[in-house]
Computed example of a mutant assay.
Amino acid sequence: MNYFPDRQHVRLRSLALGTYLHAAADGIEVRLHPDRASVNAAWTVHRYQSENAVMYLLLHSAAFGRYLSANNTRAPWGQRGYRVEQREFDEPEVDSIMWQVIRPGNFVLLRHFSGRLLRANGGRLFNWNRGVTVDKFENRGAMNRWVVEPIPPSQLYPGLPGPINEPLSSPQFTCLLFGREPPPVRVIRFQRANADGTFNDNEDGWSEFPFTGNSSYRLRYELTVRLDIVHFIMCVRAGRYARLTPMLANLPSGTGDNLYIVAFRSLSPGADELRYPDMEAV
C-alpha cells in the first residue's frame, strides 16, 4: 500500500499495453485509453479499514467521484472474466469497491475483494477491445500488471470545461430521429459548505432543483444564482459514504437521477484543503 498514499492522485498504466485505466464519460464503464493527460485517467486514493480491521484500497475517479468496482456479471464478448464498472459508495461497507495491492516487482497486481485480479483486455495491434475486467487469480499474467504513476498536485483549481452544445430544448422523439441521445434530466441536490469544509449530511440539509443536460459550466451558473455567491468550487459526492471530489469534468451521461453537490467558497479554509491533480505534469 506504500504506492498508494491516502488522497494521492494516481494513474494506472497497463504494463503490457501502455494504455491507462479510464473512467468512461457515462460514469459507469471503465476502459483503457492512451490519453494520460485526461482527468478521466486520474484516480484518487481512499484507504479504507474494514469492519474486520483489514486495510483496503479504494479508488474514486477524479472526473466523477465514482468508485472503481467489480461485480459477478460476465464480461462482454471478447473480454475475459467479469465486469469492472464505476459505482457509488452508498453503504457503510461495499465489498465491490474494495481492493488489495500485491507488488511482485516493478508493477502491482490489484486483487478485488472477490479474489479476482484487475485485468486489461485487448492488444497493441487490435485496440478495438479496450475493456477492463477482473479474472481468476490462477489466470494471472502480463495483462494483470499495472504501473502506478503518482500525479503531482496542482497548486490552483484547474477549473471546469467550457460550454458544450446540447440539444436541451429538443423533444425526445426529435433526438431519436436524428440519432442523438436525449439529454438526461436529473435532480441536483446541493448545499454550501461551512468555512471549515464541514456540511450538513442529513436529508434536510440539501436543497434541490431539476437540471437537464451534462454541462458542468451551466450547472455552475445555476448554482451561482441559487447560492448567491460567485467564487466557489463545486464538489460531487458519489454516495453517502464517498469522499468529496472537486468537479473537473462535465457531468456523467449515464448515471442515476440525483447528483449531490457541495459548494466551497473560494479561499475559505475548507477550499484550501481540496486537492487537484496536475494533469499536465510530466
Score class of each variant (00 low, 15 high):
217 Y>T: 04
90 D>L: 00
167 P>S: 12
256 G>L: 03
86 Q>S: 07
126 F>G: 00
227 L>M: 07
194 N>L: 13
203 E>S: 09
17 L>P: 03
42 A>P: 12
15 L>E: 15
267 L>K: 13
281 A>L: 09
265 R>A: 13
24 A>S: 10
259 L>W: 05
148 V>D: 07
205 G>T: 02
163 P>W: 06
171 P>G: 11
245 T>M: 14
257 D>Y: 07
210 P>T: 05
55 M>E: 15
192 R>C: 07
94 V>D: 12
153 P>G: 05
48 Y>V: 03
5 P>G: 04
38 S>V: 05
235 C>Y: 08
37 A>Y: 14
239 G>P: 05
24 A>R: 12
262 V>Y: 01
112 H>R: 10
159 G>P: 08
122 G>Y: 09
89 F>S: 10
18 G>P: 10
41 A>M: 03
164 I>K: 08
5 P>L: 01
247 M>A: 04
82 Y>L: 15
36 R>K: 14
89 F>H: 15
186 R>Y: 01
76 P>R: 09
93 E>V: 07
56 Y>V: 04
269 P>T: 08
237 R>M: 14
200 N>T: 00
26 D>K: 04
205 G>N: 02
269 P>E: 08
85 E>L: 13
106 N>T: 08
237 R>N: 06
147 V>A: 11
226 R>F: 02
173 F>G: 00
221 Y>W: 12
2 N>R: 15
52 N>C: 00
246 P>R: 00
2 N>C: 04
232 F>Q: 07
67 Y>W: 03
44 T>F: 02
188 I>P: 11
156 L>S: 13
48 Y>A: 00
271 A>C: 08
140 R>E: 14
137 F>M: 09
199 F>H: 13
62 A>R: 07
254 G>I: 09
39 V>L: 09
204 D>M: 00
20 Y>Q: 03
73 T>L: 13
205 G>M: 02
222 E>T: 04
114 S>K: 06
206 W>T: 00
261 I>D: 01
35 D>M: 03
263 A>N: 03
228 D>K: 14
282 V>M: 10
235 C>I: 08
32 L>R: 10
142 A>N: 10
51 E>L: 14
171 P>H: 12
1 M>Q: 11
156 L>F: 14
236 V>C: 02
83 R>W: 05
25 A>I: 10
17 L>Y: 06
2 N>P: 05
223 L>H: 05
102 I>Y: 06
227 L>T: 07
123 G>S: 15
175 C>W: 02
98 M>R: 14
6 D>G: 11
274 L>D: 03
207 S>N: 10
148 V>N: 03
188 I>N: 05
202 N>M: 04
215 S>Q: 11
184 P>D: 05
25 A>P: 02
18 G>R: 06
165 N>M: 12
4 F>Q: 06
235 C>R: 01
44 T>D: 00
241 Y>L: 00
99 W>P: 08
85 E>I: 13
205 G>Q: 01
254 G>H: 06
275 R>E: 10
145 R>K: 15
228 D>A: 14
225 V>D: 11
91 E>N: 04
197 G>E: 05
83 R>F: 01
145 R>G: 00
178 F>G: 02
153 P>T: 12
238 A>M: 08
17 L>A: 03
43 W>L: 04
195 A>L: 11
1 M>T: 09
136 K>Q: 13
21 L>P: 07
266 S>K: 14
82 Y>E: 14
18 G>I: 09
257 D>C: 01
3 Y>M: 13
164 I>E: 06
180 R>Q: 15
